[in-house]
Design a protein around this nucleic acid. Structure first.
Lengths: 299, 299
DNA sequence: AATTTGAATTTCAGAAATGAAAAACCTTCG
DNA sequence: CGAAGGTTTTTCATTTCTGAAATTCAAATT
């Protein structure tokens, strides 16, 4: 058995990810036959079957999945190298991941976190999914809980409040039904909360937060949103008090090895300041002069 | 620029480690010309000079050192893969690192931590140097402080006491001089302590703890040893009270990803029990029936 | 100063890996 | 049921990589 070649692991990761030879071949700029032969060699070297081969693609076996998990941590080690190479003179890219509304808030305040003269560039990754910081998918994540393990560091920012919102022009706010996130797509706590309320009557579902807001704006019903998003929307008003079940705290999470990189440090500091400056908005303290329904317990 | 090949990084690490092509070529089972060409290609791919080439070998540049640091974390990811491959059916190897005396203690108590029927094997790494657990050089380290960062976990075991020892048959214990560790080799706190004592008169140096003990046993003078080592040696007796400056606490340190592997868990538990069972010995409480000099402050 | 030694480097024939094209194969869609 | 589409696999000429030996070179030794 010839010794393990790292190249083959690199190829393996792509095959595993794309689920077949042809996809990996494109991504790696090699030919499919070569990729196939490499995987044969890797199975030879490991002495294990890694794939179930079929005409429709390559599927991982249990051993294959076990290997993939390990190769992922190697990829995490390789990523900084690739960046180190390409970052020659060019400004480094800080990948910043957040949920829809948080990303929206940051994007609208982009001058507070980035200016053209800054020694870095920013790549927004807007998703409710939790990208893997310890495996270097992103540099900074905005999360609703601190990181526990995996060599990550966290920095607390602000408390978050959630409330139901409805369009200001709604003819009958008190009787309105709910607009919810499709339970199949509900990742965040706030999206799942509504399904847990037995008494809530839902009239429409959406699969993205933006669509949910559009439905609420159009008068379809009331929807749960974070206060910092709902209170900033002039077309909406609160349809009830803060939902205490959903109160949470926001954290900036980063890789331990990155926290002292000057550009990451700078971005973190600015984000921290930005959020802290709007602490009242995030907590859900009423915005000055906003109108709203009289308070009463919801649903 | 062709994309980075992981293979070349693997080769790079060996070249950097062995300081030249020929050493790396032997270790990797390739020819020296091939290794040389690969490194040329790597410099091409990175666009940086990684080595200063000379007839006597390859020396790293600053960029080379920067790259090596990053490649080391990739190696850390690769090591579990290699073990996963070779561990097919065979019992896994737990590499256990400790200082001279601790290793000696564990070795003498090997039945307490390993028996032939156990589902693992043990590899002792006896050294005063601190091997890199986060980079997977060892599974378990016996340390005198808990790990702070780098995805490591620590478990506290016992308190350690240090004292000066002298051979029982010494004609004039009170007037004896010191046997010390060569300051150039002094890594541990206890080895460096003596140099810091202005009033200490040293008559002999040794570069290993064992030689130091042999010198003390032979009557050359008195030497600092951990109590668990000195008190167990029937030929030695204390030449003074505990050295409070040197009191420290012992920890078992392991990688966070390893702590739940059953065999590592088992070994850790046994080590913990072994040390705890001898807590009094380690702390330096006098062994029953041992003779010693009358106490008085040491030089 | 000449010699030895131990390393990198060059040369070049042979070995191994590669890609294009073709073939084989399964799935899907009409 | 047949055809189309997409994927893997085989084939084979070509390219690339490799190792042995020869060469070069600098430092250490005699």
């Amino acid at each position: 058995m010839k010794n393990l070649r790292w190249d083959d692991l690199q190829v393996f990761a792509r095959v595993a990810q794309s689920g077949g030879l042809s996809g990996a071949a494109d991504a790696l700029d090699m030919s499919a036959p070569t990729v196939g032969r490499r995987m044969l060699a890797l199975e030879q070297a490991t002495g294990k079957s890694l794939f179930v081969r079929s005409r429709t693609g390559y599927e991982l076996t249990d051993d294959g999945r076990a290997l993939l998990r390990k190769v992922r941590t190697m990829e995490a080690g390789a990523r900084p190298i690739e960046e180190w190479i390409s970052a020659d003179g060019e400004r480094p890219i800080i990948r910043l991941s957040a949920g829809t509304w948080t990303a929206n808030f940051m994007a609208e305040n982009i001058p507070r976190i980035w200016t053209p003269d800054d020694p870095y560039r920013i790549c927004f990754k807007t998703t409710e999914a939790r990208l893997d910081i310890s495996h270097r998918e992103i540099e900074i994540g905005v999360r609703n809980r601190p990181a526990e393990s995996g060599n990550l560091a966290s920095r607390r920012t602000v408390d978050l409040g959630f409330a139901p919102y409805i369009v200001r022009s709604h003819p009958n706010p008190r009787e309105s039904e709910w607009v919810a996130i499709d339970p199949d797509e509900a990742i965040t706590r706030s999206a799942r909360w509504l399904s847990a309320q037995d008494s809530a009557s839902v009239c429409a579902w959406a699969n993205t937060p933006y669509t949910l807001r559009d439905l609420v704006r159009a008068g379809a019903g009331k929807g749960v949103m974070p206060c910092f998003a709902g209170d900033r929307d002039p077309r909406l008003m609160r349809a009830g008090p803060l939902i205490t079940d959903l109160a949470e705290t926001q954290y900036l999470v980063m890789h331990n090895d990155d926290r002292h990189r000057p550009e990451v440090r700078l971005a973190i500091d600015r984000l921290h300041t930005l959020f802290r400056d709007h602490a009242a908005l995030f907590r859900g303290d009423r915005p000055i002069g906003s109108s709203e329904m009289a308070e009463e317990p919801i649903a």
